[in-house]
Amino acid sequence: MSEVREPAFDRVVALVLRVGAFTCFFVMLTGLLLGLFIHGSLPEDIERAGVLLMLATPVVRVLVAGILFLREKDWRYGAISLGVLTILLLGAVFGIGEH
């Protein structure tokens, strides 16, 4: 399995990561620059959106890889991706802890 390299698969996953990183960069930068001119909560809300997008990027990457595996009828790795996705989402649902 591992000696079979799938360039198209690699490219799609790379695209997800690249788009995620660049989008977050520009969103956070916008927040920072706005913060120079505007007072109030808007700049921080934009920065927060950038941080949340950054946290979401790996989750989307797992989701996209999982869909690609399922489309190839690679059930084993589709299931593994689903498992990783579940762990990530459980953290988001049960994010309880002391302050």
């Binding site: 960069f25 956070m28 920065e47 946290l55 953290g91 309880i96």
Partner: peptide, 27 residues
């Protein structure tokens, strides 16, 4: 990325990610 996200999501929910510091650092 996925490993860090798994823990970062938990840190975020606990209020342990300071957005006003994380944004300039990440940029």
């Amino acid at each position: 990325g996925v490993t860090a996200a798994a823990s970062a999501i938990v840190y975020y929910r606990r209020g342990d990610i300071l957005v006003e510091i994380a944004a300039p650092l990440a940029v």
